[in-house]
């Protein structure tokens, strides 16, 4: 395998990881601050993609589509927090899983009812299509490169928000001791709604960004949701930094595993058997990574013990 191909695959892994981060960031905040397991996070990803596809079809503008994905996911997120999620904070995790699983079914069927059963069209904007030549002679898709850039920018903005602003201070305080900050006069329920809507908006944005190169269809969020859970378990629940590192680790492991394992087995096995074994093992690789991390750090890379 040539070095250029390997470098391209590392970029692919990075891009995949950065998009996972957008999903995982909201999930880890919601779990860390409110102690809530939100299975419906994947539905918010789907809602973002559908909102973007709808607006892009109506206006032809990708920027408006992205704005719509942020707004739609944040609004839906805010509403379900007010109507459903709010009643779950005091309940145990099983109740939360049941209720948010019900939300997946409700939101999926509502989306199908509104947009129909067939996948929607959403494409990348002409300005970002095509590829660019990177130093070292790597030809890489401009859109995927932009995804990496957008993802890293959002990660920076989140770090700033959490470490430098008043709301970030309250989020950190909420993670440490919910009763205490309520006692200090912070309106905790408003804070929860804001965090939930913020996480939802990030999921929606990532749905729209990824939807442009994938398929916008009902149920698109659930596979990503599972990966996002793997990411936050690896990174440590509640930690944004952990989510970023975990997401990039998962992205790189998954992509490089898919690329490197089949040829590795082919060095000592018959070719088609090597393909089968290699691809089966590569699809397990991130779970093996997760298990390995948990053996050495039971609360994840950056989780509090």
């Amino acid at each position: 395998m040539s070095l250029i191909l390997l470098a391209e695959q590392v970029l692919n892994g990075l891009q995949f990881g950065v998009m996972l981060f957008l999903m995982a960031a909201g999930l880890t905040l919601i779990f860390g601050v409110m102690g809530l397991i939100n299975l419906a996070h994947g539905s918010l990803y789907m809602i973002g993609a559908f909102a973007a596809a709808g607006v892009a079809a109506a206006t032809g503008s990708f920027l408006l589509a992205l704005a719509a994905s942020l707004a739609a996911a944040a609004i839906v997120g805010g509403v379900i927090e007010l109507v459903v999620i709010r009643r779950l904070y005091q309940r145990d995790h099983l109740d939360q899983v049941l209720a948010t699983f019900a939300l997946i079914l409700v939101l999926s069927e509502a989306t199908r009812w509104a947009f129909g059963s067939f996948p929607l069209y959403l494409n990348i904007p002409p300005a970002l299509s095509g590829s660019v030549r990177l130093p070292g002679g790597i030809e890489y898709s401009l859109y995927r490169l932009s995804l990496i850039g957008i993802g890293l920018l959002i990660a920076l903005a989140l770090f700033w928000l959490i470490s430098k602003t008043r709301i970030g201070m309250r989020i950190r305080a909420g993670e440490n001791d919910r009763e205490m900050i309520a006692a200090l006069g912070v309106d905790i329920s408003k804070l929860y709604t804001v965090i939930f809507a913020l996480g939802a908006a990030l999921a929606g944005l990532s749905g729209a960004l990824v939807g442009a190169i994938q398929s916008v269809q009902v149920g698109m969020g659930e596979p990503v949701l599972i990966l996002a859970f793997v990411v936050i378990v690896i990174g440590g629940i509640g930690s944004i930094k952990g989510a970023l590192i975990g997401a990039v680790l998962v992205g790189l492991t998954d992509t490089l595993g898919r690329v490197l394992l089949p040829p590795f087995f082919a060095t000592f096995m018959e070719k088609s058997a090597a393909t089968t074994v290699g691809s089966s093992l590569s699809s397990m690789l991130i779970y093996i990574l997760m298990a390995a991390v948990l053996i050495f750090r039971p609360s994840g890379l950056y989780g509090r013990a």
Partner: peptide, 12 residues
């Protein structure tokens, strides 16, 4: 190549 069932990213 065999890809993962349900895989949506084919960059690799």
């Amino acid at each position: 190549l065999y890809t993962k069932l349900g895989q949506t990213d084919y960059a690799a």
